Amino acid sequence: MPPSDDVVLRVENLTRHFPVKGRIPFLSGGVVKAVDGVSFDLRRGETLGVVGESGCGKSTLARMLVGLEQPTSGAVRFGSAVVHRARGRELRALRRRIQIVLQDPYTSLNPRRTIREILLQPFEIHPDVLDRRRRIERIKELLDLVGLDPSLHLNRYPHQFSGGQRQRIGIARALALNPDVIVCDEPVSALDVSVQAQVVNLLERLQEELGVAYVFIAHDLSVVRHISDRVAVMYLGKLVETGPEIDLYESPRHPYTRALLSAVPVPDPAGRRQRQRILLAGDPPSPVDPPSGCRFRTRCWQATDTCATAEPPLAAGQHPVACHYPLAA
């Protein structure tokens, strides 16, 4: 791993709780613990994959990383700056360094603006980045960088593009200000499989050329394995296991991680018959009233009384796991 001084983004005990308002007596007045004590470091030029079930807090985490959502507690540090505390010029400078690629390529682009106008907007918001005479040349470079022909596509509207092409435009917009970090919030989930491969390969190529770091959020575990250097597994607002991609996929130590990986489709029929499929009992608990102790204990096949009374910490190390009885590597 790179040395610690190469950390570009540091997340410290980040939480986000949403108050519950309504007429249901046993829910009203509570809080939804969407993200509850998440910590990790992102190093320059690496990709951290984040996986987990729907509703585990991945997208809320992504929005806090770029400052679109204010945390309840904790901090997101970019260098010496704290993202959610930045104001004025400091916030404007941070916006340039941390960008996001949104999940839906159909609603993330303004339908009333041409691609020229969409890609010029970052430079209009940050006029000191680039001289006005260089901007058209720069957006042509961005389109060429993501594999689109400027002479054909510059004056078209978003509805004239396919989903994969729209996502390429979204990536070009994220790259416009030369950021250090791009948060990819499920950037390929709305695309066809063949287009997914093109976008993932594009992201890898751009990382090699530009040295940008990614936080890559996705449901598809095979895509995450392909692109990630490290992987973090979330369950009900918490990280339960993190580690290098090969260690986590080949030797998962948390029961939830092993169950999650056992659900990945195997194209080889012989390998599919040999693999043990782990079926978890019940549904994920409500984030309004999570279980005491270990949050996975209500679905875990090896839970004990200790799991109900003490919350397992995510210990430090190369491959930390938040479990009282981690599985053998």
Score class of each variant (00 low, 15 high):
Q167E: 03
I118A: 06
V8Y: 00
G22N: 07
V188L: 01
H17A: 12
D185K: 05
I98E: 15
L175D: 02
G57L: 00
G49C: 10
K33E: 08
T114M: 01
Y256M: 00
L248D: 14
P267H: 03
A322N: 05
G30N: 09
R168F: 05
V223E: 06
Q165S: 01
P25I: 00
P71I: 07
Y214S: 13
S54C: 02
E204V: 04
I217N: 04
H219W: 14
A303E: 09
T304E: 01
L191T: 09
R113C: 03
V266E: 11
G55L: 00
C323L: 12
H126Q: 04
A322H: 00
S189W: 07
E250N: 13
G79L: 11
V51F: 15
H153K: 11
I182A: 03
V20L: 04
M234C: 06
D268K: 07
S228G: 08
C294L: 08
L221S: 09
Y325G: 06
F296Y: 15
L154G: 10
V7Q: 01
A232K: 04
K33I: 05
L145H: 04
V146G: 09
G317T: 10
R272S: 14
G29F: 05
S251C: 10
P2Y: 12
S4R: 15
V195P: 07
L261I: 10
V224C: 06
Q99S: 03
G45N: 07
R230I: 11
A197H: 02
G147E: 01
G243M: 00
I227V: 11
T309A: 15
P187S: 07
G67Q: 04
D41E: 13
D192C: 12
A232I: 05
L27V: 12
F123L: 06
A176I: 07
Q103I: 01
G88N: 14
V20D: 09
C184L: 11
Y256V: 06
Q318L: 08
G30H: 14
N201K: 05
F78A: 08
R295N: 11
A213P: 00
M64T: 09
A176M: 02
M1W: 13
I139M: 05
L202V: 13
F18L: 03
P267C: 02
V195N: 03
E53P: 14
R96Q: 11
P187C: 10
V82G: 09
L68Y: 08
K140D: 15
E69P: 03
D192V: 08
A259L: 09
V195M: 06
P285W: 05
G74M: 04
T114P: 14
I24E: 02
